[in-house]
């Protein structure tokens, strides 16, 4: 019988067809795992009181309890502020890629986005959705009602990645659209010229938004599991290239590592949370990243 934690694994989630169930399973699995994880205390539903000890933030002291008991108690993890989140989905054709014919990058991103949506609505955080290819295609305004989960999930379930993309322009468009400080969660494989994208991220950050960049790559794109003579075709441009995969693997891995490292360094500089993912990784990594960010905002 499957344990709840196993729902964090993409290969298990893949077997569930309904996106809402996928999101629930991911979130439940995530919280189940938290009990035994170093992230214990990130609960957003349960608020507890404990004795104040020196070193605690004095702002956390619950003065009502002090009034009743004459003792200092601190309240922990009670959500007091609302954070407006935007799920930004890349609709490029390359996002539809899967080497092992399991979860595509887009499927993985959707699962993750749905789980985050589920989680945020539970926190009473308003959450909205934007999708883009060469420009913004879909935009759902953020709401914190439970009904919003259904709206977002229904849009996500009907998305089809196709055609070329222009990430930098789309991000610039989002920057221009948003008036209030928000948490922007971008799901993309970032396969494009990195410099304009980084510039766009910088602008987004400059607009006062918190940005989490979920860099979703396929397992094959990270590990390059090919052997022998292979002809590769780029899905967006149709360009082809013949390669001796064995001889090229080391070079490729160096390239992809350098690519991710450059994003990591640049994102760190501009204050963007860069989360490198691949389709073989568990979903909790992405959720944890969200919670850390939310706590920082709190």
């Amino acid at each position: 019988m499957l344990t709840v934690e196993q729902y964090l694994k993409p290969e298990v989630i893949r077997q569930i067809s309904r996106l809402d169930l996928r999101a629930q399973f991911i979130v439940k699995g995530f919280f189940q795992g938290l009990h035994a994880s170093p992230f214990h205390g990130f609960s957003v539903e349960f608020s507890e009181h404990r004795k104040y000890t020196p070193g605690d933030n004095p702002q956390d002291i619950d003065w009502l309890v002090y009034a009743k008991t004459d003792k200092y108690y601190v309240k922990k993890f009670e959500a007091e502020t609302n954070i407006t989140g935007y799920l930004v989905m890349d609709l490029s054709a390359s996002m539809a890629y899967t080497y092992r014919q399991e979860l595509t990058k887009f499927d993985y991103a959707i699962c993750l986005a749905a789980a985050l949506c589920y989680l945020m609505i539970h926190q009473n955080d308003p959450v909205g959705l934007m999708t883009f290819d060469e420009r913004i295609k879909t935009s759902l305004p953020p709401k914190s009602k439970r009904k919003q989960i259904g709206n977002i999930l229904s849009v996500l379930a009907n998305l089809k990645p196709s055609g070329p993309t222009h990430i930098a322009a789309s991000l610039d468009q989002i920057t221009a659209m948003l008036r209030h400080r928000s948490l922007i969660m971008v799901f993309s494989d970032l396969l494009g010229d990195p410099e304009p994208i980084k510039t766009a991220l910088r602008r987004l950050r400059h607009g006062g938004h918190d940005v989490i960049l979920f860099h979703v790559l396929d397992e094959a794109e990270v590990r390059f599991p090919f052997d022998g003579l292979v002809e590769f075709e780029e899905p967006e441009s149709g360009e082809r290239m013949q390669v001796d995969a064995n001889g090229f693997r080391a070079d490729y891995l160096d390239q992809i590592k350098a690519f991710r490292e450059s994003y990591r360094i640049d994102c760190f500089r501009i204050g963007v949370d860069y989360v490198p993912l691949d389709t073989s990784m568990q979903f909790d990594r992405a959720l944890t990243e969200y919670l850390v960010r939310r706590k920082a905002r709190g």
Binding site: V230, E231, F232, Q242, D244, G247
Partner: peptide, 29 residues
């Protein structure tokens, strides 16, 4: 000449950078 297997692969931009060296190595092999 035997045709290589065709594989769809989006991250072609990382291969392109070493393309010439790869072509020479391929021809040598």
């Amino acid at each position: 000449r035997r045709q290589p297997k065709l594989v769809i692969f989006p991250a072609l931009q990382f291969i392109r950078q070493k393309q010439e060296a790869n072509r020479r190595s391929l021809r040598l092999r």
